[in-house]
Amino acid sequence: MEAKPLIVERTYNAPIEKVWKAITDRDQMKEWYFELEEFKAEKGFKFQFTGGDENVQYLHECEVLVCEPPHKLSYSWRYPDYKGYSVLTWELFKEGENKTRLKLSHEGLESFPQENPNFRVESFTGGWNYFINEALTNFVETETIKKNISITASAEAIWDILLNPGGQWGKAFGDGSFVKSDWKEGSSVIWTDLSGDVGAHGVVAEHRPTEYLQIDMYDDVNPAPDAETGEYSEKYKLTKTNNGDYTLSIESGPLAKKYTQMHEPMWDKALEIIKDLSEKR
């Protein structure tokens, strides 16, 4: 009986171009997949990498067999130190403006030495389910962090603290988080560390003092003069409550899901610092 290929499918809340780049761009692949020294989505391109578990690492040798952007990518998958030959195929289907179905097929697994449990279909099933249902999902799908806090202080005091994060609430994101900006609409906003190295670069999209501030971020920390900002932005809104206090709300995103768990507690800490400093004035 002919062995059936291992198939894993998943639909992502992301456009097809974004998913295609995630599975073909070397810099993006290392964020969720394997770290490759070099990769090109071109028929005939050969590449190799190591992968395994804490006990053993295996050298993988591959060659791109089919490349039809942004719909299909196939490459051979073998281990030079072991017998066997398999083919891995990624197929993308546009399910909507921002939805993409991925079908991964891995055939030929039965040709590998079955006395080694790492080469059995059960092992590959666990591995591909992790990559497709967890790692890639958390890389291509995004979330927006939304937080708010009640502050008993004047709007002017709160806003002054907000515009001066360096050495204050900026510490929530690292001990050396400083910002340079005159906060005028259209002006740059540059986050640096103690050494002056740029960590983030944005532009003031909208600023209504003591009410609302929006910073749109560039994808590159050193953007070209004609570069446009990316999807990520930070929005700060201050509203007065019925009892005379203020509610400071922030929105940060969209961020890849893999980063939101790390950033959420940072924003909690930042808001607590803003509250503490504002109420002490």
Rank of each mutant, 00 (worst) to 15 (best):
K257A: 12
D160H: 14
E91C: 03
F139W: 12
S181H: 12
R10F: 05
G167S: 08
E115Q: 10
N148A: 06
D268Q: 09
F45D: 02
G96P: 08
Y58C: 00
E95C: 04
Y75Q: 02
E141V: 03
L194E: 01
K180Y: 11
E264Q: 10
F47S: 06
A14Q: 07
L104D: 01
S195G: 00
L248S: 12
G52N: 04
Y259E: 14
Y218K: 07
K103Y: 00
D53Y: 02
S76A: 04
Y58I: 02
P113Q: 08
T247I: 15
P223I: 08
A14S: 15
W128I: 08
A224D: 15
D197M: 09
A3T: 13
P265F: 06
E2G: 05
E134A: 11
T152N: 15
S195A: 00
E251Q: 15
S111V: 03
T50D: 09
P5S: 00
E234A: 14
T125L: 07
V87A: 00
T11Q: 12
E143R: 14
N116L: 08
E264N: 13
K171A: 03
K235E: 12
T125K: 11
H201G: 03
S187P: 06
V19C: 10
E143W: 09
G174Q: 01
S195R: 00
E35S: 13
G51F: 13
E211Q: 15
E35G: 14
L6W: 05
V189R: 04
E95P: 04
F34M: 11
Y82C: 04
P165A: 11
S74A: 08
Q168N: 15
Y218H: 10
V8P: 05
D81C: 05
E9G: 05
N55F: 15
E37D: 15
K103W: 02
N116D: 11
L88E: 10
E2D: 13
K171S: 04
E134N: 14
V66C: 06
R208A: 01
L163Q: 08
K43A: 05
N118S: 10
A155T: 14
A227W: 01
W159F: 08
K46Y: 01
H106A: 07
V8D: 01
N133F: 06
K99L: 11
P209I: 00
E31S: 02
K43I: 11
E91D: 10
